[in-house]
Simulated scan of single mutants.
Amino acid sequence: MFTILFRTIILYLFVVISMRLMGKKQIGEMEPFELAIAIMISELASLPMQDTRVSITHGIIPIITLLSMQTLLAVLQLKSEKMRLVFSGKPSILINKGKLDLKKLKDDKFNINNLMEELRMQGYYNLSDIEYAILETSGQLSVIPKTELSPATKQDLKIKPPQEGLPVTLILDGKINFKNLITANKDENWLNQMMKKNSISSVKDVLVAVLDSKGKFYCQLKEKNE
């Protein structure tokens, strides 16, 4: 029993590290070869977990091999356009200048119902509203609506708002994050003043305090029954 537990922990950690080294892509954003490698790694790891007669190295060595192949392919794709086309393919324009390309739909095994569903999920309900629809190599659909239907931006309305920054967490669960305070160009005295302004007597009473993207101080206190 302890042998199985030990092997499972080792293989789990090894697979997590391997997937972490592959990058921060979600499953739906993986290229076909990346998804194939991810599936193979999970299968290889499961065999030594289920059968103690299989050496743990018989799972680890193939995983290292696949990870090395994935790294090599990623480097080759960075350096060569041809390699990118071979392993990742190229995007397909399913709607071009407002017209459906039936040949591209057929080649990509993507029927009109699938296309309409993807469009609805992105907030578009009429084919006549779309200028371009591009099926990316990851399987995601990029949609470019007709110009007159594009959302108006602040620049279009000639509004010049100040540039927003990143929100910074200053207090989390009653503890001050001093590193984030320095990042936000604030100090503990400023934080104490903001707490006093918001009638907060102790840092321990704060669930979360954030300096938001507009530079405003926001905080939420802990519930009394916590």
Rank of each mutant, 00 (worst) to 15 (best):
M1K: 12
F2K: 11
I4W: 01
I4R: 11
L5M: 13
F6G: 01
R7P: 03
R7S: 09
T8Y: 02
I9V: 14
I10P: 02
L11C: 07
L11V: 05
L11M: 15
Y12T: 15
L13I: 12
L13P: 00
F14G: 08
V15F: 03
V16E: 01
I17S: 10
S18P: 00
M19K: 07
M19L: 15
M19A: 07
L21M: 14
M22F: 03
G23W: 05
K24C: 02
K25G: 03
K25V: 00
K25M: 01
G28R: 14
M30N: 01
E31T: 14
E31C: 02
P32Q: 03
F33I: 14
E34R: 05
I39A: 06
I39N: 06
I41M: 15
S42I: 13
S42V: 13
M49R: 04
M49F: 03
D51C: 01
T52D: 10
R53I: 00
H58F: 06
P62V: 03
I63N: 04
I64Q: 01
L66W: 05
S68G: 11
T71W: 15
V75P: 00
Q77K: 15
K82G: 02
M83H: 03
L85K: 14
G89V: 08
I93V: 15
L94G: 07
I95Q: 01
I95T: 02
N96C: 09
K99N: 12
L100F: 05
D101G: 01
L102A: 12
K103Q: 14
K103V: 13
K103A: 12
L105Y: 04
L105E: 04
K106V: 00
D108F: 00
F110C: 09
N111L: 05
I112H: 02
N113F: 11
N113M: 11
L115W: 03
E117M: 13
E117R: 08
R120C: 03
M121A: 11
G123K: 03
Y125M: 11
L127M: 14
D129P: 01
E131V: 02
Y132Q: 09
A133C: 04
A133T: 04
L135A: 08
E136Y: 05
E136A: 07
T137A: 06
T137E: 05
T137V: 10
G139Q: 08
L141A: 08
L141C: 05
I144S: 08
P145F: 05
P145C: 05
P145T: 08
K146R: 15
S150D: 03
K154S: 14
K154I: 10
L157Q: 10
K158T: 11
G165P: 00
V168P: 04
I171P: 07
L172T: 11
L172W: 06
G174R: 03
I176N: 07
I176W: 07
N177E: 13
F178D: 14
K179M: 07
N180E: 11
N180M: 07
L181R: 08
L181Q: 09
L181N: 08
K186I: 06
D187A: 09
E188Q: 11
N189Y: 10
W190L: 10
N192V: 00
N192R: 13
M195W: 09
M195P: 06
K197M: 10
S199E: 14
S199K: 15
I200P: 04
S201F: 09
L207M: 12
V208L: 14
V210A: 10
L211K: 00
L211D: 04
L211M: 13
D212K: 03
S213F: 01
Y218C: 12
Q220E: 13
Q220A: 12
L221R: 13
E223K: 10
E223L: 07
E223H: 09
